[in-house]
Design a binder for these strands. Structure first.
Lengths: 154, 154
DNA sequence: ACAAACTATTTGACTTGTCAAATTGTTTCG
DNA sequence: CGAAACAATTTGACAAGTCAAATAGTTTGT
């Protein structure tokens, strides 16, 4: 296949990041709108809350690693979520630097209220995608994610 | 297949947005680092510059639509890129509201300097992905993108 | 012609995201 | 032990992203 072309149309592979970035904008807008219409939660707050589904009593660093999120931002967000009564922090008894976080009852309740809508959304997003396609999709996602760690382009 | 489970492991479909968001963080970091190491361009500036590959003499609205980017942000960014000498604006003679934008020589030069690295990166990102997988991947991306426009979850 | 409805862009106020340096606590090892 | 190296978190400064309202120019219908 000819990857050089004069038509102005580029090979698909040169559009990966463009397509992903654009999709991400749309997904953020959709998620934000849905959360706003049914709760007072922001998308970041929701994501932080959801990360406890994967990591119980997680610390800041664990959440940051899981979400690939900046620790500075996370630190401030957690602080505000504690103030809002969504999170509770408990200092690790063996290492006073780390605080284990848990969702409060209030957060649990908000989470169960929103969950049906958020799950419906997830379903909707892939409703025209077959199981086989989805499997390939996640496989590719994983490969791109691994490759996104690479830095030395010379 | 049983989608209800008590193991704490969720069906893949419920992770689409999480996975995409996390990947996006990594890709942004990679792109930003690469641009910074070889030029003074930010990722947004690069993306705006690249959009002229698809849309010649584009207006703000056209770029915003293409990139799913906020018009306010774009307006300010374009202004600063004009000040930096990267873009030139020309008022449409039939509609004075619209300004057609073009890359300056300076921007063209920066673009050609960076392009080999950025293309190498795109290739690297998908180097372990087969053509067939990539095709499926873009197909799924398109379906999710279409579904991301939907708003009425009741 | 001209007001109402539209459209393109800009501006303001605010949230989220990034990067680096500072702070606080822990471990390692001479 | 005690200083240097490490690690977890916080803070500061600033860039990017969002949302709504304002401004400026154009089209439509009468």
């Amino acid at each position: 296949m000819n990857t050089q072309n004069t038509s102005g149309i580029r090979p698909l592979s040169s559009m990966v990041t463009f397509r992903l970035a654009r999709l991400q904008s749309s997904l953020n807008a959709q998620g934000t709108a849905l959360l706003k219409s049914k709760s007072g939660l922001s998308l970041v707050e929701w994501r932080i809350m959801q990360s406890f589904r994967m990591l119980e009593n997680a610390s800041l660093t664990e959440i940051a690693d899981l979400m690939q999120m900046d620790k500075g931002q996370l630190s401030r967000k957690i602080k505000s979520m504690i103030e809002k009564g969504l999170l509770r922090a408990e200092t690790d008894k063996d290492d006073q630097r780390v605080h284990h976080l848990t969702l409060t009852k209030k957060a649990e309740k908000l989470r169960s209220q929103m969950l049906p809508f958020m799950e419906a959304r997830q379903k909707h997003l892939v409703e025209d995608v077959s199981d086989e396609e989805l499997k390939v999709f996640f496989g590719v996602l994983q490969k791109i994610e691994a490759a996104s760690k690479f830095r030395d382009f010379e």
